[in-house]
Amino acid sequence: MIKNKLNEIVSHKTKLLVLILAILSLSACEKTESETSANDSASTEKVEQITSESSNLIAEANKQSAKAKEVGFEWSTTQKLIDQAQQAEEAGDTKLASELANKAIKESKNSLAQAKYADEHWQDHTIN
C-alpha cells in the first residue's frame, strides 16, 4: 500500500520534472530562434550597408571620372577600373568593388591634379 503510494508520488514527480524540462527546453528553443532571427537581420543590414557603400563609391568614381573627361585629361585606365568594380558588385564581391572604385576615384583625382598642373605650368616646359 505504502509502496503503491510511493510509486504514485514518484511517477507524479517524474511527470512534473518532465513537464518542467519540456517547458524549459521550449523556452530555450524559442530564445535561440529569436536570437538567430535577430542575428540574421543584423547580418542582412550589414550586407546592405556594404553594398550601399560600394554603390556610393562607384557613383563617386563615375562622378570624378566625368570631371576628368570634361577637362580632357581622363586616363584610359580609369573606366576599366569602374567597369570591374561594377562587375564585382554585381557578383556580390562588395569588398573588391569598393577597392576598385576607390582606385578609380584616386586615378581621377590624380588626372584632375594633372590638368590643373598643366594649366598653371605648361609654359615651364616649353623651349620658347
Binding site: S76, Q114, Y117, H125
Partner: peptide, 17 residues
C-alpha cells in the same frame, strides 16, 4: 594647340613634347 603639345597627360605623365 601649343599648350596641348607641352602638357603632360595620361597615367604615364608624358607630353607630346
Amino acid at each position: 594647340g601649343k599648350k596641348f603639345f607641352y602638357s603632360k597627360r595620361g597615367q604615364l605623365n608624358f607630353a607630346c613634347a
